[in-house]
Design a protein around this nucleic acid. Structure first.
Lengths: 201, 201
DNA sequence: GTCTATATTTCGATAGAC
DNA sequence: GTCTATCGAAATATAGAC
């Protein structure tokens, strides 16, 4: 038995952390923050519940890490679309496609964000952080829509309201997919065309 | 001190029950099923936590009563629209207006239904019941959309997919309104026109 | 690094006084 | 009908063995 090197330990630690996060996002979205027991996450990750505390200080910390991951991706999509190249409409269409793809491919993260923002049992500092990142996303989308209006590609109207509609649609879709999966059903693919129809000039 | 009559007691009991349900829907949607303590509901209703058990046998029973209320209203809206008079498009428009009005006027009930359907911590029999009622709503909407297609008023396409989009939009909107309110903000009124634009032939 | 065992807290539910 | 006091279960977090 050769002893483990420092690097090897570090690698194992990082792997376990990822393994834990992947398990946790499923459990949290399934049961909600309050009802999720450390033991549930441990079981889903295939480790003992005591060991969880070697990787995260608390249930809160795991949750916060997951919300950060999700919001990071959301910021990348929205602010990336704003900063990208191409006509406003092309970027809007690409962004909406990315959002819908995300909602259908990884609905758990969308549901988690929704949970973090709406459920009072989630620690306040996590909700605040999610909200601030969400506001950044909102501003990016609104700017992009305004560019589209200036280019005559997006229908006239309040961009704030349009953004609300996009959010509502995407979030609602993710939640529907999750509730269907919980029943063993599957919702067929929803493409961007109907959403774009709401926005097109 | 004249003694209370039987009828008076009955009236007090019914009033307290309503008072409890009204308080409970707010607390449940704010904190989720698992994180809601009987003491929270009692505090919101202004009574002691012990007294709650004189009106409902358990936390579950309160939750089930609320989900029944919400689904009853949903069934009335959707099946009523299907059975109503007027052209399919008129009935579709009225139904969507009613849904959006409901989502904005009483978003807690929409959020509660969403919770009941997606959160695993909710007792299975409540989730099953909500799902069954939800399926009845879905079928009513699909039939109505099909009638609209037959009349040439609704765009061609999969009615199941359209129903998913309507659901997603309405549910997502209710959740957005709640998360905004939690931050002290308010989302301006969203009318039916953009949704109808997704459906119109 | 990983596990089992346990201390501590919290909360749903009940009992009993008024 | 309403309250306060309390029981008992459950779950977070820790301690300590391997």
């Amino acid at each position: 038995m050769t002893p483990r090197t420092k690097e090897e330990n570090e690698r194992i630690r990082e792997e376990r952390r990822q393994q834990l996060l992947e398990a946790a996002v499923k459990v949290f979205t399934d049961r909600g923050f309050a009802a999720t027991k450390i033991a549930d996450i441990a079981a889903a990750a295939g480790i003992s519940h005591g060991l969880v505390y070697h990787y995260f200080a608390s249930k809160e910390e795991i949750y916060a890490a997951l919300v950060d991951l999700a919001m990071g991706a959301a910021l990348e999509t929205t602010e990336g679309a704003l900063a990208g190249s191409g006509s406003p409409w092309e970027r809007i269409a690409a962004m909406i496609r990315a959002m819908l793809m995300g909602a259908q491919y990884a609905p758990e993260y969308y549901a988690l964000v929704n949970q973090a923002m709406t459920v009072g049992a989630v620690p306040a500092h996590i909700r605040e952080k999610a909200w601030r990142d969400g506001e950044r996303c909102r501003r990016a989308i609104e700017k992009l829509l305004a560019e589209g209006q200036a280019a005559g590609e997006v229908a006239a109207g309040d961009v704030e309201r349009m953004t609300v509609m996009i959010y509502a649609f995407v979030q609602g879709l993710a939640l529907l997919i999750i509730s269907a999966r919980q029943r063993g059903a599957e919702i067929g693919p929803i493409d961007a065309e109907p959403v774009l129809r709401m926005l097109k000039a």
